[in-house]
Write a protein that binds this DNA or RNA. Structure first.
Length: 644
RNA sequence: GCCAGUGUAGCUCAGUUGGCCAGAGCAGCUGAUUUGUAAUCAGCUGGUCGGGGGUUCGAAUCCCUCCACUGGCUCCA
């Protein structure tokens, strides 16, 4: 008998050779029906895998991430089986599960798949799933594996097998389809009840742009049709919230072919929004001892040669612009830090000045390949809410804490409830990738780790994700639809102070090199606003929204009264507009609702008589009539509610 | 940059296998109406069908090319 430890800590005894499925069955039949895979001592395996010795076992169902991954991985095999049945000449690459669903990279030869092929593939998949084919695992020798795929003439699989150790190779077979795969898989195809081919896309074989472009087939499957329907509805909702669509509808920003792609143009409403965000952050930074600066949009090429960015990115940047007579070369500013280093270095600095916190809403320009551009989230010109903190080594942790505190406050103020942070450290196996001494790195990494512990921030750690000049902390937020986005970063940098030969005079009257912290809570205004638009579906927080109310006179006779109301509300610092068009009240309400203006203030005979306004809340409806003072009070309560 | 797709009025979309002056709704303008909680009515304006080139008696429709956009891939200081 062996001892099996379950997640609740209980230990049960079974015969050696018991499978996770057997264990599930011994707990309940329902669990056994739903179990998709399991982990044995941390390794995810088939639910039918025999367990020889004492083990810690977890059972995974559709409710577990691992369960879903197994389900989708098995679905990828089912997709491959389907493709092979429909298009016998297709060659297969890899087919892993992803966050939602899975894909399979295939080489379709001369044939091109089109969206018209999707329903056919979906139907065939479900037809094959109903065969209830078992996913059968077997170990094969390398020679056997090579022989099989040589016979099948599948060069991609052969390439993969050649990189594997003999003795570690396994095949999985379901129905007529056999694939190289380490598993695990679900027991058979029958739980796959709903399938949707999402799209066809190009993907380089093994992610290498020099190699063949394969066709990547994205798809998703579910155990219930209803779940597929819900998933498609979520996608619909995301489409409705798309910042490119809402940005155009709400007249926040625009693009113009003549101005150039990837260069957003901020319209008046969007500019109001953006400046309110900046004013808010500016205020918070002033409280924390930041000093704002303004630096030019271009900089001498020498500046970026000094910083090292020209060597690293020069070839993939907008090319230098030249002065007509002297032939001097300038670059469009791709980042603000070199300028800020010059500010630090322009006069002798004392340790008494540190930490020196230099902030700038700095607009930068970076060349991005045409295929990368995407609305406001990936552009060629954008404004960073940038700042650089120059400090002593001893101050790094304290400054890091200050920045953490500021950043978390900013994120909360914006209405994001869920956020985590990723600590990006050196790759311990690849120390040559980084510059700077071990001592400095250790100090910086510990400063980050300690600081995040101090503030009880939920973090993940990624080795090898550090910048070449220092470790960093990236903030990840979850939006209203549960999607994750990366916001700003905090980075510790020993490189630039070195390159710019920055120094301060310490209390020992000797020169020391400062440490630099780069940080941007929003990241870029453009990208942040794109996330905010989609998170709020265009219904911005009351303090931030461009227009807080729209006064709707029942007819043109009341436009003058409306004007008076607007002036009175301005005294309470409440801003808005009057819809004085010659339109029906129903029409005005509809238009204002669609503009996502939070309050509609309707005025007609009744209101003039009683000196009131009739208040309607966007998305909610009529709130009844109020006096101006009453509304102002109510408004401020709502403002505070949003602040908590 | 690469793969696949899309591009018709400010917006959303129709335009049969290439064939008379390219259509609708919304928006805009003008007029009527003076309106009570999600679209009042009527009339009018507006497009060299993304740009350029080609095939054809004839091109929004077919071909080439460039541009922009969409979904991916690669990249992201």
């Amino acid at each position: 008998m062996i001892n099996i430890t379950l997640p609740d800590g209980s230990i049960r005894q079974y015969e050696a050779g018991v499978t996770p499925m057997d264990i599930a069955l011994s707990i309940s039949e329902g669990l056994a029906r739903n179990v998709l895979s399991a982990s044995v001592n941390g390794e995810v395996v088939d639910a039918t895998r025999a367990i020889a010795n004492d083990a810690v076992v977890r059972l995974f169902t559709w409710n577990d991430r691992e369960g879903k991954q197994t389900f989708w991985h098995s679905s990828a095999h089912l997709l491959a089986e389907t493709l092979e049945a429909l298009y016998p000449n297709v060659k297969f690459g890899i087919g892993p599960p992803i966050e939602t669903g899975f894909y399979y990279d295939v080489d379709t030869g001369d044939m091109t798949l089109t969206p018209a092929d999707m329903p056919k593939i979906e139907e065939k998949m479900l037809e094959l799933a109903r065969n209830k084919s078992a996913y059968a695992r077997r170990s094969v020798s390398k020679a056997e594996a090579l022989a099989y795929f040589t016979e099948k003439n599948d060069p991609y699989k052969l390439e993969l097998i050649n990189e594997l150790e003999d003795g570690t190779i396994t095949f999985y077979q379901q129905g007529n389809f056999t694939d190289l795969c380490k598993g695990p898989h679900i027991s058979d195809t029958s739980p796959i009840k709903a399938a949707k081919i999402m799209n066809f896309a190009g993907a380089y074989w093994r992610g290498d742009e020099k190699r063949k472009m394969m066709t990547r087939i994205y798809a998703v499957t579910f155990p219930k049709q209803k779940e597929l329907t819900e998933y498609l509805e979520l996608l619909e909702e995301a489409k409705k919230r798309d910042h490119r669509k809402l940005g155009a509808e709400l007249e926040l920003f625009m693009f113009s072919e003549k101005v150039g792609s990837g260069l957003p143009i901020w319209l008046p409403k969007g500019t109001q929004l953006r400046e309110r965000l900046q004013n808010y952050l500016r205020g918070e930074q002033e409280k924390r001892g930041y000093q704002m600066v303004v630096t030019p949009h271009i900089g001498h090429k020498l500046l970026y040669e000094t910083s090292g960015h020209y060597a690293k990115y020069g070839a993939d940047s907008f090319q230098p612009i030249k002065t007509p007579r002297e032939g001097e070369e300038f670059l469009l500013k791709p980042m603000n830090c070199p300028h800020h280093c010059e500010i630090f270095g322009h006069k002798p600095r004392s340790y008494k000045e540190l930490p020196l916190r230099i902030g700038e809403f700095g607009t930068v320009y970076r060349y991005e390949q045409t295929g990368e551009l995407h609305g406001l989230s990936r552009v060629r010109g954008f404004t960073q809410d940038d700042a650089h903190i120059f400090c002593t080594q001893d101050q790094v942790k304290g400054e890091f804490l200050n920045v953490l505190e500021l950043t978390t406050q900013v994120i909360k103020k914006m209405g994001f409830k869920n956020f985590t942070a990723q600590i990006s450290l050196r790759d311990p196996n690849n120390p040559d990738k980084y510059i700077g001494s071990d001592e400095n790195w250790n100090a910086a990494e510990h400063a980050i780790i300690d600081a995040t512990k101090d503030v009880d921030l939920e973090t993940t750690t990624a080795y090898g994700e550090a910048a070449f000049y220092g470790p960093k902390l990236d903030f990840m937020i979850k939006d209203a639809l549960g999607r994750s986005w990366q916001l700003g970063t905090i980075q510790v940098d020993y490189n630039l102070p070195e390159r710019f030969k920055l120094e301060y005079i310490g209390s020992d009257n000797k020169a020391h090199r400062p440490v630099m912290i780069h940080r941007a809570p929003f990241g870029s205004m453009e990208r942040f606003i794109s996330i905010l638009i989609e998170h709020t579906a265009g219904k911005f927080p009351l303090w931030l929204t461009p227009d807080q109310f729209m006064i709707l006179p029942v007819s043109e006779r009341f436009n003058e009264y409306a004007e008076g109301i607007k002036v009175e509300l301005a005294r309470f610092d409440i801003r808005g507009l009057i819809d004085d068009r010659n339109e029906s009240i129903g029409k005005k309400i509809r238009d204002t609702e669609l503009k996502r203006i939070p309050f509609m203030l309707i005025v007609g005979d009744k209101e003039v008589e009683q000196n009131t306004i009739s208040v309607r809340r966007q998305g909610q409806g009529d709130l009844g009539s109020m006096t101006i003072e009453g509304f102002a009070r109510f408004f401020n309560e709502e403002l505070e509610k949003g602040e908590e």
